[in-house]
Lab assay of single mutants.
Amino acid sequence: AELMTLTIVKGAQGFGFTIADSPTGQRVKQILDIQGCPGLCEGDLIVEINQQNVQNLSHTEVVDILKDCPIGSETSLIIHRG
Rank of each mutant, 00 (worst) to 15 (best):
18 T>W: 08
81 R>N: 04
56 N>Q: 06
74 E>A: 03
19 I>H: 15
43 G>R: 03
67 K>Y: 03
80 H>L: 05
22 S>Q: 13
38 P>L: 14
42 E>L: 11
13 Q>L: 08
57 L>N: 15
3 L>D: 11
3 L>K: 14
56 N>V: 05
6 L>S: 08
76 S>V: 10
68 D>M: 14
70 P>M: 06
82 G>D: 13
73 S>F: 14
3 L>V: 10
68 D>L: 05
66 L>Y: 00
13 Q>D: 09
14 G>Q: 09
25 G>S: 03
29 K>V: 05
66 L>A: 01
35 Q>S: 12
22 S>D: 14
82 G>L: 04
82 G>E: 15
48 E>H: 15
56 N>W: 15
23 P>K: 13
81 R>Q: 09
32 L>P: 05
48 E>Y: 13
58 S>F: 02
22 S>R: 14
59 H>I: 05
79 I>C: 06
55 Q>H: 00
82 G>V: 03
53 N>P: 12
80 H>D: 14
50 N>K: 12
14 G>F: 03
18 T>C: 10
2 E>C: 10
48 E>M: 04
3 L>T: 13
9 V>R: 09
53 N>K: 11
11 G>H: 04
9 V>L: 05
59 H>L: 12
70 P>H: 06
68 D>H: 15
63 V>Q: 07
43 G>I: 01
61 E>F: 01
72 G>K: 05
10 K>G: 05
27 R>E: 04
39 G>Q: 15
27 R>P: 01
79 I>V: 06
77 L>P: 00
69 C>K: 15
78 I>V: 13
60 T>G: 13
15 F>Y: 10
22 S>F: 06
32 L>F: 01
16 G>Y: 04
69 C>N: 03
63 V>K: 07
72 G>I: 15
12 A>N: 08
8 I>G: 07
76 S>G: 09
38 P>T: 10
18 T>E: 12
29 K>Q: 09
43 G>A: 07
62 V>P: 01
33 D>V: 04
36 G>L: 02
14 G>L: 06
15 F>K: 02
9 V>C: 05
5 T>S: 13
13 Q>V: 08
11 G>R: 07
3 L>Q: 13
37 C>D: 09
28 V>A: 02
63 V>S: 06
16 G>W: 10
18 T>F: 04
37 C>Y: 10
38 P>C: 04
78 I>N: 12
38 P>W: 07
56 N>H: 15
15 F>Q: 09
51 Q>A: 12
25 G>P: 01
30 Q>T: 06
29 K>E: 15
35 Q>E: 04
47 V>N: 02
51 Q>T: 13
25 G>K: 02
72 G>W: 02
9 V>A: 07
34 I>H: 04
57 L>R: 13
6 L>W: 04
71 I>C: 06
12 A>F: 08
16 G>I: 02
65 I>D: 01
13 Q>H: 04
24 T>Q: 10
71 I>P: 09
26 Q>C: 10
35 Q>P: 02
18 T>R: 11
74 E>F: 15
22 S>C: 06
23 P>R: 11
47 V>L: 06
77 L>H: 01
71 I>G: 14
22 S>A: 15
25 G>W: 01
10 K>M: 06
44 D>S: 01
53 N>T: 10
43 G>W: 03
64 D>A: 03
59 H>W: 08
61 E>G: 10
5 T>A: 07
19 I>E: 00
41 C>I: 14
49 I>G: 00
5 T>K: 11
11 G>F: 06
46 I>N: 00
52 Q>L: 08
14 G>W: 03
57 L>I: 08
11 G>K: 07
39 G>K: 03
34 I>N: 14
51 Q>D: 11
17 F>V: 02
42 E>D: 04
44 D>G: 00
2 E>H: 06
30 Q>D: 11
58 S>T: 05
31 I>W: 01
6 L>V: 11
30 Q>F: 15
53 N>D: 11
12 A>P: 10
61 E>C: 10
56 N>F: 06
21 D>H: 08
4 M>G: 05
76 S>F: 07
5 T>V: 07
21 D>T: 15
9 V>D: 03
38 P>S: 09
24 T>F: 09
57 L>M: 02
82 G>K: 04
27 R>D: 01
29 K>G: 12
4 M>K: 12
56 N>G: 13
3 L>C: 07
32 L>Y: 04
80 H>F: 05
22 S>E: 06
44 D>N: 03
4 M>I: 09
49 I>L: 13
20 A>M: 15
67 K>S: 13
36 G>F: 02
43 G>E: 14
56 N>L: 09
9 V>S: 06
64 D>L: 05
43 G>L: 12
15 F>V: 12
25 G>A: 10
